[in-house]
Design a binder for these strands. Structure first.
Lengths: 315, 315
DNA sequence: CCTCCTGCTGCTCATCTGAGCACTGCGCGG
DNA sequence: CCGCGCAGTGCTCAGATGAGCAGCAGGAGG
């Protein structure tokens, strides 16, 4: 720094000019005339004022969204949308509520009548569905089978139906479990007319919403629902995350597993065809899973909360 | 407001664009290309972001100067210089120290070798003199006679001599009291060669420094030094302030008094001829006196502290 | 069905602005 | 005494920007 030797008069002059320029919106030419300086001098003083910190510009939002983190997350991973909700680390339920409302707002904003919406099952997706305002007749497609959660709220079918009711569009649902004991059963189920009809819609889906699971106890509904053998097998294969039943390694690469053959739901290739997949992760523990999901290139949007966003960005 | 119905995506987009524009310094054209928008759209989003408070620009300074107040004071009263020192309301002595240092910095910054400096007597002027760095050979002229303050530090003569020593220029001093019992004595003193020589310098003075007294007990060294009859007489004449022995009414008009005839010092007309008179008031009580001084048109610069500046501006 | 109205978009053109360059005054060392 | 370097200033010119205007889509009401 070399501009430190200006005295009080210089500082006040700079501040005065900065005020005229930045707060009163006058042009540098006008300011130059007013102060009897050349416009170049004015420009240099303004530059110096910016560099010295006399003029401080900050971008922030009162209203629950940490715009700075949102933008950084978006830029870092080349996402189409990122929304970081500024919430203290509350319990998971209230976190889901906040994320759900933000995601509902985001969806309502970006969805057009030409969109086809796909929904994976996750508790945060369920929370979003509850907060969703009326959509313009968007069709809704179920992406994953039903995971029966003891005492859980809605099933994937319920959520899809609910959103379709809010949108006024058709609901493409099917009643089938998410996982079955063997591949043959899964294949047979996929051939069922109802299931096949829903799957036939997958190429038309333009926006999907899913959760993100970390392949660890208590961090993924799917993880907790399968057998210990499956858990270990996937762990050994390097599975870190699951997104709508698609398994991902730490570097984001989809991992083909034997379990995948026994599941009724969207596959990695079909997921990749969807123009924008929105994920709704929460809880700082999931940071590795979120990084994997964002690196995978499958994900186009994220709604999350401050602490997890910080953890993902590594600061 | 009508821009309230934008959702999270719009906010994040605006924030992203604002970041690129204001923090990364990209042009609107570049941003438009990057986001696939027209430059007009970018400009409108930036305008909206400014208006909605998403982008906040503030001008402030770490280092003891409240630039915002300084600029407002300067603009309000059309001053050449205003410096508001950001100090908590301390005791008068520490306040004088802060003001003195700031004034010394200001003076050092604006004084040129062609200037001739005039000094009135005030404790803040004395404090300034102590903090003054070497000046480039500037002559120094004594503006007021000596007010013997019991236990006080320097007299006006001492201050002028001290500053002249720091500047390396000539000191134009005279030994005479500030007030005398009758007009004839004052006239006789003014005719003394030493006094006349100093007074002859007055038309050449280009910058003067003075305090501001409020015509009330304890708020003006001069007030406290004269007789009760004089105090009352001036009070009845509507005198509110004294600046270098020049008396002012609340509206800033100089008040001609009988006491003026009995004083050895610069007069209102001579004071007005000085291109920039810098005053150094402190203590919120003096707000009315400062307003009078600033309205008078005699004063071209002020160095003061936050509380008094607020009081003067009426907020 | 048409028409008006409103809000939003992108255009034109005059003005503003930034990057780079040339000039000037000053201090320093030959 | 002169030449040199350096910091600070203002100029040129191309590119960026703002103000105002015209076009267009969508909704309300006849």
């Amino acid at each position: 720094m070399d501009g430190d030797r200006v005295g009080p008069a210089g500082i006040v002059l700079s501040a005065s000019i900065a005020r005229r320029y930045y707060l009163d919106g006058r042009s540098k030419v006008e300011i130059a005339d007013e102060f009897g300086l050349s416009r170049f001098k004015v420009a240099r003083l303004l530059d110096a004022a910016r560099r010295s910190g006399l003029v401080r510009i900050e971008i922030r939002h009162e209203g629950g969204i940490d715009v700075d983190l949102s933008v950084r997350l978006r830029d870092r991973y080349g996402l189409q949308h990122a929304v970081v909700v500024d919430t203290p680390d509350d319990d998971d339920a209230s976190l889901r509520g906040h994320l759900g409302r933000a995601a509902a707002g985001l969806l309502a904003e970006v969805v057009t009548p030409d969109d086809v919406l796909g929904l994976a099952w996750a508790r945060a997706v369920s929370a979003m569905a509850e907060a969703l305002p009326p959509l313009p007749g968007t069709p809704v497609v179920q992406l994953t089978g039903v995971l029966s959660l003891p005492g859980g709220p809605d099933t994937s079918v319920d959520v899809v139906r609910g959103v379709a009711r809010a949108s006024g569009g058709p609901a493409h649902v099917f009643y089938a479990p998410f996982t079955v004991p063997d591949a043959a059963t899964a294949a047979a189920l996929r051939r069922q007319p109802e299931v096949a009809r829903a799957f036939a819609q997958l190429p038309h889906v333009t926006r999907a919403v899913a959760g993100v699971g970390l392949w660890a106890p208590g961090q993924s509904t799917l993880h907790d629902a399968v057998s210990e053998a499956d858990r270990a097998a996937l762990r050994d294969l390097g599975v870190v995350a699951d997104v709508s039943g698609v398994f991902l390694a730490a570097d984001g690469a989809p991992v083909r597993t034997e379990l995948s053959e026994r599941m009724i739901g969207i596959g990695a290739d079909q997921l990749r065809q969807i123009p924008e997949v929105l994920v709704l992760p929460y809880g700082t523990a999931k940071a590795p899973a979120v990084r994997a999901a964002l690196r995978s290139g499958l994900v186009g949007g994220i709604v999350t909360h401050t602490a997890l966003a910080h953890a993902v960005l590594g600061d």
